[in-house]
Design a protein around this nucleic acid. Structure first.
Lengths: 362, 362
DNA sequence: TGCACTTTGGCAACAGCGTTGCGAAAGTAG
DNA sequence: CTACTTTCGCAACGCTGTTGCCAAAGTGCA
């Protein structure tokens, strides 16, 4: 909670606490949560919570949802988030495919689009395509519903803060393209947020309740990572963090496409190509263990097309390396878990817009 | 800025803004800073700043320090921090040496102690020694001065949050020793903070104006790191972050004391032992490049006894690897700089107590 | 020397935040 | 039906930063 320059005034205070309450309402789901419980969880007084929830109910963001059983007195009134109070579009641009979802405040997908895409067709063509998909989904908004914005997730390294792409691998014409502003202009001023696909997935996981600090490692045609530290996505000063794939784990090893030698990505994919999946998993695990040691994160999650090919091998391989390390250091081991889902990136992209409402990723 | 559970009330708001103003006063140094400048920098209104500074002056933490030249109107009154309003003791426990300093709010050292130490003499003996040194320094407080607390920095891995040591390398009897609470009890309740030596150095650098995100790499008898991300020391959920030395950069490489193979520490120190300093620097640089890529940090700083032996070789070696990586990724290179100073760790330890006053590391 | 102007910064009134005191509402227990 | 417990809103309050206004303290020009 901080305004421009770090100073906080009463408006900042209010939006901070409001976002906090909204987040607890969202986390509680359809069963809802009582005012007193909100007070306990936030550390605010019950009366403050009452005022905040009264305002939220007036604005249509929250509503009553029945009552709890009595514990000897007046039963608690249960409140819930009204998910239809706001929507966001999430777009996943891959090298050969486009997926887009319309999600409500709760993150629930209420409409979807998908089809082939040629990133090489040039910025203008892709931009037109994306804009029309967003408008199609906007047309499916429930009556009276409003679109908070559109989130776009795509591979290459990019500047999240300015919404500018650099070096989308294999497509030099995208270099320096101001995707955020261009798309926002096409959409008539609708707010647009742009981020790496791995960051979108990591954000989606964080919002879905994957607490604390964790890393999402994505092994597909390349190897990337999304880092969540203390509940928020870590992007770094130049928003280029998460360059996991070109971490060197074999000094003077085999050359990598990036120009260096012995990168995790090169070693891992080469092992996969040789059919040595277990070795690939061990290499991946070594990189993960380095990450865990440096940042002391709680968990590592692995995913991506290549992992899907042999999930058990990758999970147990990475887990093996991490557990061996944990036995030496005495620290709790970062647990490894497999995840999947076709629309995961698009849903995470929608969260780029939704999460700030709940005080996350703002 | 957040209270228990994340909820923020007016008290939290006030201490946040007060700390912000105090930090700007500290940063401005003896020349001071005007109210209007404080308002611009914090984003608060001039009137709010006036109220905050009035309170600080009443409490003796701030004072007027002359006036600026007029720019056509009433000249600005300049305010400054009163460094004597608070002091902290910083203690550096090394394997064979103890250094302690008494620092004022500004971080200026006003008294010092140092002498040999035997960490192997056991917890009780060392505790008595440390307590007496702290009391000696407390006696040197200026008249009316108060001691805010004592910060203790030492090598091994430890639990910063609970103030408990684990595995001080080579001294198993320290395992699980609750240093913070034990020392605090000896000192009659004076607040005590405990942290790794590398974290103390990193914090000291951050407070001294080393902005943004950076890593301090310490190469002495071992290899450790202190990470600062976005202005605050990153310790991780279990406060074990910064295990830089046992990052694997050579799969199946030579065995390390930790039980793994190909760790940066082992490779680096082995190269030093062979007299191949340039190779040691290249290995260190590779580990640093991995870190820079993962976290997208701004700068890397290297130090420690081994580095002091051939500073130019290490700096240029690490810089070479980082610049080569930057040429490939197109991202700005994390600059490498050499630092030194006998009391640096002890000064940083004092900042473990002082920094929270200024809203840092709290 | 005097007057107009600019800039700083305090005083007072204010709006809005969470807090406290109190009482109505809505249950259970006997 | 009565006593008790628990929830939760209303009203008054204290404290925050904000706004409107004016005194203070300079410069610049006639």
């Amino acid at each position: 909670m901080r305004g421009p320059g770090g100073g906080a005034n009463l408006l900042v205070l209010r939006s901070h606490n409001t976002a906090l309450v909204l987040d607890l309402l969202r986390t509680a789901g359809p069963e809802g949560i009582s005012r007193l419980e909100l007070a306990e969880r936030t550390g605010l007084t019950p009366q403050a919570v009452s005022k905040i929830t009264a305002r939220l109910r007036e604005e249509g963001l929250a509503a009553e949802a029945g009552r709890r059983a009595s514990t000897g007195g007046k039963p608690r009134t249960v409140l819930r988030l009204v998910p239809e109070a706001g929507h966001a579009v999430g777009v996943h641009l891959d090298r050969d495919e486009l997926r887009a979802v319309l999600a409500d405040l709760d993150g629930t997908v209420v409409a979807r689009r998908h089809g082939p895409l040629d990133l090489g067709a040039g910025a203008e063509a892709v931009l037109t395509r994306v804009a029309s998909v967003v408008e199609e989904l906007e047309a499916e908004l429930p009556a009276g519903g409003s679109l908070l914005g559109a989130g776009v997730a795509l591979p290459g390294p990019l500047d999240h803060r300015r919404g500018v792409l650099h070096r989308v691998t294999g497509f030099p014409e995208w270099d320096g393209f101001p995707l955020r502003d261009a798309l926002s202009a096409r959409l008539g001023g609708v707010p647009v947020v742009v981020d790496k696909d791995t960051n979108a997935v990591a954000l989606g996981l964080a919002v879905a309740g994957e607490g604390g600090s964790f890393a999402y490692l994505h092994l597909g045609t390349g190897l990337g990572a999304g880092l969540v530290i203390g509940g928020s996505v870590h992007r770094g000063p130049r928003t280029g963090a998460g360059e996991f794939g070109h971490q060197v784990v074999q000094l003077d090893g085999p050359p990598c496409g990036c120009g260096d030698r012995g990168c995790v990505e090169a070693l891992c994919l080469a092992a996969v190509a040789r059919g040595e999946t277990a070795e690939a998993a061990r290499v991946l695990g070594t990189g993960a263990a380095n990450l865990v040691g440096l940042l002391d994160i709680d968990r590592v999650l692995v995913g991506g097309r290549t992992v899907e090919g042999a999930p058990e091998v990758f999970v147990s391989g990475v887990r093996g390396v991490l557990e061996a390390r944990a036995r030496r250091t005495g620290e709790e081991c970062g647990v490894v878990r497999l995840v999947s889902g076709e629309e995961r990136v698009a849903e995470g992209a929608a969260q780029l817009v939704l999460a700030p409402v709940f005080g996350q990723d703002g």
